[in-house]
Design a binder for these strands. Structure first.
Lengths: 195, 195, 195, 195
DNA sequence: AATGAATGAGCATTCATTCAT
DNA sequence: GATGAATGAATGCTCATTCAT
């Protein structure tokens, strides 16, 4: 890793919390220099502009989540177990020391949808990919006779994601991590009902 | 209604969409003068500062939703029907010409939770009130033997709100109103299962 | 004249020398606040941006010159006398307390021709208008039998302007006002030769 | 020529057009690295600062012109012919592929006279040298009885340079190479009248 | 001799807010 | 009660320059 790559990674890591907590518009270059200890010139030497940092931070946050998902899903044998493992991630959400400030996908989605096309695009892709993954597990589970053939995979995936994201929002806003656990419990019940 | 009250109401109405779409940090006084056709001096003559406008806008948006909820719930006889009526509001969400830019509670919750205590407080109250309403309907439904006594009202309320809010986010981000309808379908199924 | 118009005029007057001496790129907003005693905000309250000030300054400088030209030309009876009166303006160039820093048209022409289309356009129009005026005097002089019919009005006008502007440049650069007077003498000889 | 000398020459050549078109203040180190393909460090390894490059570029441009002048003058027998040869250079100005952006002496003179003493000094010397050359030709022509003894060599030289430089400015600004030719024609007539 | 990476001062511009009229 | 005009701090970004490697 070159010096530039190291500094880029350093900037991303140090500003990730900032962008997630204060949003894109709410995070200033000054905030960023304070968080990193670097000068504005240095940040602009490594990124073309604030936008590029924000997009890189989003990718960074997403990778973090995807890595956790992969680790937890791969060890599961059946599709049902994989779905349950998926939910377990959110049941133990606070355990994983993820970027503070709530779910980056949710935050980005909410802030960017009317204001920042490039970020919106990133959030959209992340959600569509997530939906596709859940859908695949359900479809394969049906094929493997784990789930009832009448199950609507699309509907399940959408409801799954909606509930989890809504649960994260409630937990963050009300400062009650248990609310997400409560939602996860309901989602687990939904998974049981797939059979 | 005095002239001052009229102007205040006018400012709130004209800037409501702005705040909901661009967020608090993303909405400038200049945006507000453009949207209203008024001068900055005039806005400051009617509100102490930008904050006050944002808070008033939140109240305005919330009242709009609450009025719709009240209208649709009151006509229902049973508690189950009332819960179903509740969900119908979101099934037909786009029909009610609400403030553009997605759900104001969700937007405010996401933007304010790490940055704006006063707005956060408003969002918190709105959510807690919503949760309390749903919980009451379930509790009364249990007492009236409409729902099974084993039902956890708190869990249901939290999951209900989480799913709906998550559904709104998905619909806004992906620009697919049907996603919210899909979530509402799942919620209706959850209501059926309460019996 | 409204307050805004007064401030605009004040800004133009106070920054005219600045732009003429340091050029468009060489004049900073800080220079402008120092020269006017106003804040940046005040300048931006009266002009959309630095460009608008520069363009207004150019117009202001041009008007100043045009006013002097008009005053001196109008009193002359014959076309030859009008041409001579024209040159007298430049013979006494330093007398008129014009904007310091040399000829604004020349300065703007030289700086803007490869970099600033809007300013270039202004300089172009000023020069074309000047050429047209000189040409008209010659043409009318020919018609009035003051000048020989073989005279090429276009050639005279171009040479006239070129010599004067070149003379201003030499005087400014070498800090020798007499150089312009020397050039004017040659131009006067050219005028005598028109007959 | 050492490596360092080669690189210096390379930098000068590649940035000459830049400085002539955008001016000293308008040319950034970034522009210079783009134009040369070198790094900032490399430019600073070969020149003390931006100033030094600009001064070297001026010298480079001046040498180019002087070489052309020498080549064209030397072949002429009489002083009148030498003066006419001088003007021919400008009649065919566009033929010689000189630095784009107009006359470097004029550009430098106009930009630097109020802002950059070192460049101003260079432009001053170039003009004085030019004037001295023209003056010598006229004086020698008088001594050789080619020109009338009443001719004012200083006045002729100043008017000559003023007209040519003014002509270059008009041609550049109005994008009409013919304007310079028109001026040159007038200058040739002036030369004829010296006899 | 050249590079990559950094610096900090400076750039044009926009911000929320104030206040005399 | 509303306006026009101002303020000064903050915005994102670029500048010429330096220096360890």
């Amino acid at each position: 890793m070159s010096k530039a790559e190291k500094t880029k990674a350093f900037i991303i890591e140090k500003t990730a919390a900032l962008f997630n907590e204060k949003g894109y518009a709410g995070t200033s270059l000054n905030d960023m220099t304070e968080a990193t200890g670097l000068t504005k010139g240095s940040i602009y030497g490594n990124f073309a502009n604030k936008d590029e940092v924000a997009l890189a931070v989003f990718d960074h946050n997403l990778q973090k989540i995807n890595r956790i998902v992969k680790e937890n899903i791969d060890t599961s044998a059946t599709y049902k177990e994989q779905l349950l493992a998926y939910t377990d991630i959110y049941y133990n959400f606070s355990k994983y020391s993820l970027t503070p400030g709530g779910c980056p996908i949710l935050n980005t989605a909410v802030e960017s949808d009317d204001t920042h096309p490039a970020l919106r695009q990133k959030a959209t892709e992340a959600i569509l990919n997530w939906k596709s993954n859940i859908k695949k597990l359900v479809t394969k589970g049906i094929a493997a006779k784990e789930f009832d053939s009448s199950v609507d995979a699309e509907q399940f995936a959408i409801t799954f994601i909606a509930a989890i994201e809504g649960g994260i929002m409630l937990s963050s806003l009300l400062n009650k991590p248990d609310h997400l656990k409560t939602v996860v419990k309901s989602v687990k019940k939904m998974i049981e009902e797939l059979s």
